[in-house]
């Protein structure tokens, strides 16, 4: 059984302690909600989970093994959605999607790409250069990217931002389908995306340690 956990995580950004002694655990098929006021470090925690940031102390474990032991294998297991959409405006919607599917290393599966486009109702835009897309459509394209190639762990930073109601429903379905396949999700969001989920309140790990250097 694979399980994604973090222990004793402390993160310092600039010269400020963002959070300290933070621990979390995501099991297969589970969703972890990150909560906390703005600036409490939800994005930082997600970037840290992805391995973009290095914690000052503590470690991330996948099935009991430290993710730093083989970072390339760990990176193959996750999809990250950040604030920016990573959409190249000169490429068409489909080219954008296929490129990221190819970059994951496996031969891109046409079926997955097609389904991802359908899930986020982008099929009719597939041949359109991405510069014609609205902010919401770009966000959908970025979300379709994580459906277009398989990875067990999704790290989603405000995925519902600039999405309309229908697209939020689509996202909800995508997450549910991912959960059914045993996928894990860590998400920071204001929207209700899944009914039952674990909640991690980051402010618990910040206030008591504020200013400790």
């Amino acid at each position: 059984m694979a399980e994604f956990t973090g222990q004793d995580l402390t993160c310092i950004r600039g010269e400020r302690v963002v959070f300290s002694k933070l621990a979390f655990s995501i099991d297969e098929g589970e969703v972890l909600y990150l909560q906390g006021p703005n600036g409490s470090g939800k994005s930082t925690l997600l970037r840290l989970m992805a391995g973009l940031l290095r914690p000052v102390s503590g470690e991330l474990l996948w099935g009991g093994e430290n993710t730093r032991d083989d970072p390339e294998i760990f990176r193959g297991r996750l999809h990250y959605v950040g604030h920016q959409d990573a959409v190249k405006t000169a490429l068409t919607v489909e080219e954008n999607l296929t490129f990221w599917a190819e970059m994951s290393g496996a031969e891109p599966e046409k079926r997955l790409v097609r389904d991802a486009l359908k899930t986020f109702s982008l099929t009719h835009l597939a041949a359109l250069p991405a510069r014609f897309l609205s902010a919401g459509q770009r966000k959908r394209l970025n979300l379709a990217r994580i459906c277009a190639s398989a990875a067990p762990l999704w790290l989603l930073d405000e995925p519902a931002n600039s999405l309309d109601t229908d697209s939020v429903v689509a996202l909800r379905h995508a997450i549910a389908a991912h959960q059914d396949k045993g996928g894990m999700v860590a998400v920071a969001t204001h929207e209700e995306l899944v009914s039952d989920s674990n909640i991690l309140d980051i402010s618990e790990f910040t206030s008591s340690n504020r200013g400790a250097l």
Binding site: G14, E15, R16, R210, G211, L213
Partner: peptide, 13 residues
């Protein structure tokens, strides 16, 4: 200078 900066940050918080 680092200490001063740390104090300022604490002040801001």
């Amino acid at each position: 200078a680092n200490k001063v900066r740390a104090l300022r940050i604490r002040q801001a918080e």
